[in-house]
């Protein structure tokens, strides 16, 4: 990149150059928030599942993928706008999660020194199984999810806001707030928090942690499947699409503090910011390097997560 003209071109060009730089900075900031927004829904569910059930679900990305494919199918056969399918997908995946959780619970309950590790290995296998099944079922083609927001964007003060991404972020925030209300204002929510904090004591207080774990897993699967619709329409839908989100979910949960809810949101935004700023000002090649270096620093100096609320 050549240096911007300063003296020779005179003041106006210089000012234009400054404006351009300012615009780019604001746009990068906004992009960061919007990228982070995509991760929030996944991070919230993932974090909760970990908190209550000690499950690190390696198949998190595959739930995203299955959600996207489900929306693709409904869209393809019934011509319903993918965004209108959000409630349907959360219900459908919630139900699948609810029915599936006991299988997972069996693995965690086995008498083994590191049952959590067994669950990790089990969900790893599950993710491979889901990917293979998707490849068999939907084939190798890349699919496109077109929503009524896909084509639109708004420009404010030189900053472009892609409508779909704004929608995804707003939606993630609304879901998170609703979730917070549920966790902090309802009895079931309180029970979940109690179980997350100390399952043994919660059990002694008469909380049925098995039923709660099922509920939590249902919520987690529903939220994750639903975020697949946004991810599928922003990017594209294919059997391998989930893999990158598994890696990011781990980053978000570890950086945010294991089991911490608000930490996960902050970490999701941090992830978006790093991806955005590093790409623009350093180069895309450095994103992962810096991402995991930051994670290392966080683990070193804030082992309980960036907000200090994790374990």
């Amino acid at each position: 990149m050549g240096k911007p003209a300063r003296n020779s071109a005179g003041f106006p060009k210089n000012r234009k150059e400054r404006c351009r730089k300012m615009d780019l900075f604001v746009q990068t900031l906004v992009n960061g928030i919007l990228i982070g927004g995509i991760f929030i829904t996944i991070a919230v569910g993932f974090s909760l599942a970990f908190g209550v059930m000690d499950i690190i679900d390696f198949a998190v990305g595959e739930w995203v993928m299955l959600g996207a494919f489900t929306a693709f199918w409904f869209n393809h056969f019934l011509h319903i706008d993918p965004l209108l399918l959000l409630p349907l997908v959360i219900l459908l995946f919630g139900l699948i999660g609810y029915l599936f959780q006991p299988v997972l619970q069996k693995v965690i309950n086995i008498k083994h020194r590191s049952a959590a590790l067994m669950a990790l290995a089990f969900t790893f296998g599950l993710s491979t199984f889901f990917r293979g099944s998707a490849l068999t079922l939907w084939g190798f083609n890349n699919r496109n999810l077109v929503t009524f927001l896909s084509e639109k964007s708004v420009t404010i003060f030189g900053v472009t806001l892609p409508a779909l991404r704004v929608g995804a972020t707003l939606f993630a925030l609304i879901v998170t707030v609703l979730f917070m209300v549920f966790l902090y204002k309802t009895k079931t929510g309180m029970a979940i928090r109690a179980a997350a904090e100390n399952r043994a004591v919660a059990g002694l207080m008469g909380i049925d942690s098995h039923r709660l774990a099922r509920l939590v897993y249902a919520l987690y699967a529903g939220l994750t499947g639903m975020s697949g619709i946004f991810i599928g329409s922003i990017f594209s839908v294919f059997p391998e699409m989930g893999v990158r989100y598994t890696a990011f979910a781990f980053f978000v949960v570890v950086a945010g503090g294991l089991g911490s809810f608000s930490g996960a949101i902050a970490a999701g935004l941090l992830l978006g910011m790093i991806a955005s700023f590093v790409t623009v000002y350093l180069g895309g090649a450095y994103v992962f390097l810096i991402l995991f270096f930051v994670l290392y620093l966080i683990l070193l100096f804030f082992p309980k997560g960036i907000l200090g609320k994790g374990w």
């Binding site: 351009r20 730089k21 615009d23 780019l24 746009q27 990068t28 992009n31 960061g32 919007l34 990228i35 472009t160 892609p162 991404r165 990017f235 893999v243 990158r244 991806a275 955005s276 700023f277 790409t279 623009v280 180069g283 895309g284 090649a285 994103v287 992962f288």
Partner: peptide, 18 residues
């Protein structure tokens, strides 16, 4: 710019747009 596979292109496109 050489970017890792599976990257989100929006920040890069923003920079290029400028």
């Amino acid at each position: 710019d050489i970017v890792p596979a599976g990257t989100d292109f929006t920040p890069l496109i923003s920079a290029i747009k400028g």
